[in-house]
Computed example of a mutant assay.
Amino acid sequence: MDTVSGGGALDSLRWQQESYKVADKDDGMLTQEDFFALLTKELSYQDPTKPVENNEMISQMTAFSTTDGVTQLNEQFTNFASSMSSGQALQASSLVGRSVMVEDNSFTLVGDEEVKGKLVTDEPASNVVIYVENAAGERVQTVPVGSVAAGESAFTWDGKESSGYAAPAGEYRFRIAGIVDGKSTELSAMTYRKVDSVTLAGAGGSILLNLNGGSSMALSDVVEVSEG
């Protein structure tokens, strides 16, 4: 009997196995190209009498698409967060040399200067008086205001004591009292602080404004910005 040698028509009937190489990734993540290469490899080895169910194949593709989508979303969010941080840093740097308002009645007097602030009341108030106190709690100046409407009212202290002399540098605070609805009430005060410099990576990675007098505050705590 004649022996049939390999080649010719019989060779064309053999399974042609294709080789696939998963692209090297520094992060070890599979791309869509890698996934479909592995899927094709899996199909080439399956039992022809028991092919992979459509549902199973769709499930694998859906799982990969979901994972790939989450990865892309994470990358987009990282880029967005980086962009936001850069924008905040630029915004903060533009505040150097300007004054910002904070919800605090304490402030630092550096030299012979005026100090600006705002008093806040939810209802109209009468007989309003602003007291300026030093770090020891001693009253150095009293400024009568009179009646104010509900909301915010701006005021300025000239930096001088009751004697008329300039107050020494140091820590001070505004204490504001008035009559609201027939009762003696202490009103809230906000003050302006001048920004000397900016720390771009402070505690917790937040952007800090370094104020005159050595104190600092988070950029997110700024209520208002003034030119001077």
Rank of each mutant, 00 (worst) to 15 (best):
S5H: 10
S5V: 09
G6T: 12
D11P: 03
S12H: 09
L13Q: 05
R14A: 07
E18Q: 08
S19R: 14
Y20A: 15
V22F: 04
K25W: 00
M29I: 14
L30M: 11
T31M: 06
Q32F: 15
E33D: 14
D34A: 08
D34N: 14
D34R: 13
F35I: 11
F35K: 04
K41I: 12
E42C: 08
Y45W: 02
D47M: 00
D47E: 08
P48T: 03
P48Y: 05
K50I: 06
P51V: 03
V52Q: 11
V52W: 12
N55A: 14
N55G: 15
E56M: 11
M57Q: 12
I58N: 14
I58M: 12
Q60I: 09
T62D: 13
A63I: 13
T66A: 10
T67M: 10
G69Q: 02
V70P: 02
V70R: 02
Q72P: 01
Q72D: 13
Q72V: 03
L73D: 05
N74M: 07
E75H: 06
E75S: 09
F77K: 12
F80S: 07
A81V: 00
A92P: 04
S93C: 14
S93Y: 06
S94F: 12
V96P: 03
G97N: 14
V100N: 06
M101T: 04
V102P: 01
D104C: 03
S106W: 13
F107T: 01
T108V: 15
T108Q: 07
T108L: 07
L109S: 02
G111H: 07
D112R: 08
D112F: 13
K116P: 09
K116A: 11
G117C: 02
K118Q: 10
K118A: 10
T121R: 07
S126I: 15
N127M: 09
N127A: 14
V129W: 05
I130G: 03
I130R: 00
V132P: 00
E133K: 15
A135R: 03
G137E: 09
R139W: 08
R139P: 02
R139S: 11
V140E: 00
V140F: 01
V143R: 01
P144Q: 08
V148M: 03
V148T: 02
A150T: 11
G151P: 06
S153Y: 08
S153E: 04
A154T: 07
F155D: 03
F155M: 10
W157R: 04
W157L: 02
K160F: 11
K160N: 13
A166D: 08
A167L: 10
A169Q: 09
E171K: 03
E171S: 00
F174Y: 13
A177F: 07
G178Y: 01
G178L: 11
I179F: 04
I179K: 08
G182E: 01
K183A: 14
S184F: 11
T185V: 05
E186T: 09
L187E: 00
A189V: 03
T191C: 04
Y192H: 00
Y192C: 01
R193G: 00
K194A: 07
V195H: 03
V198P: 04
V198W: 06
A201T: 12
A203T: 13
S206Y: 05
L208T: 10
L209P: 02
L209Q: 01
N210C: 02
N210M: 00
L211C: 11
N212F: 10
N212W: 09
G214H: 08
S215T: 04
A218T: 08
D221Q: 06
V223P: 00
V223E: 00
E224M: 09
E227T: 08
